[in-house]
Design a protein around this nucleic acid. Structure first.
Ligand SMILES: [Mn+2]
Ligand SMILES: [Mn+2]
Ligand SMILES: [Zn+2]
Ligand SMILES: [Zn+2]
Lengths: 143, 143
DNA sequence: ATGCAAACGAGAATAATTATCATTCGCGCC
DNA sequence: GGCGCGAATGATAATTATTCTCGTTTGCAT
């Protein structure tokens, strides 16, 4: 578990507690980039840590509000979180294997701004996901 | 309640029942274009019809599968449905008043296709919502 | 080391949706 | 128009994701 994280939490206005450090470590040094509350809970449990599920939900929401994590609502009804690394991106999700790729397209971004302006809206946020089948070798369901 | 709807249901492979006719009528002739299961349930209840909530959920899902309705997952955790009129569009939602505007942008659509192809995905679907504040006169929260 | 507010863990509560199952309905056939 | 039967319905229980409650523990400043 990274030594710098306690300071990282402090500077985000959150006191450094064991559950928070463990969750943050998972996102910073773990295998998965996009994780649900249940994912985080199980991974912590698997590594022998005893963190309550309610605490996982609390910490994820706090991290989101502090700007450390970003929340996404992919299809499937559960929130998914990832580290906030400052740069916005959107997602394409494989409906067969769940694999997620990230992309950023400035043409799409600027068209969104234009559309919002034309319709008289001030943009706060947007959510774009493409759903399909990946044909990558890593997809266990590829043809 | 429109006289042609029984045939409309039949041709969609669904037998013409009272609850189905009422739900369909709401989407075809009602005030709201985008409605959740609870919205539909309450509107039917308000108009004196006694339709079970479970039936509303069942019918909405059946209509979606039959291609009569389209389901959207806006923020807020509940599914929202609208009449499928053949043409795809995306949505911009006011975070103050909930007002929804629809838009279609061929530049965004074609960029999505290109991105999916580059990443080795076959697109099945996509979901794009812009969230902001509307400045329209109709927004009860405008400045 | 001590104190205390903040955070935690377990489990109850809530919200949206789905499953179960006894009763009712739509519809083809007499 | 009445029968019969499988599909559809409505009430309610069950499920899933998430939040709330509350007694206990912990981080951290004194
Ligand atoms: Mn991402
Ligand atoms: Mn629409
Ligand atoms: Zn795949
Ligand atoms: Zn508005």
């Amino acid at each position: 578990m990274n030594e710098l994280e306690p300071e990282y939490l402090k500077s985000a206005g959150l006191k450094s507690t064991l559950p928070r450090l463990k969750v943050l470590d998972l996102f910073k040094n773990g295998q998965e980039r996009h994780m649900s509350a249940e994912d985080v809970y199980q991974l912590l449990r698997d590594s022998g840590d005893n963190v309550g599920l309610a605490t996982v939900y609390r910490v994820l929401t706090q991290f989101e509000q502090a700007g450390l994590l970003v929340r996404h609502n992919f299809e499937g009804g559960k929130s998914v979180f990832e580290l906030n690394e400052g740069t916005h991106h959107d997602h394409i999700v494989c409906m067969q294997c769940g694999h997620v790729e990230e992309f950023y397209d400035s043409a799409i971004e600027s068209r969104q701004k234009k559309i919002a302006a034309e319709l008289g809206f001030t943009i706060h946020d947007h959510s774009l996901q493409i759903y399909g089948d990946c044909t990558k070798a890593k997809c266990p369901h590829r043809r």
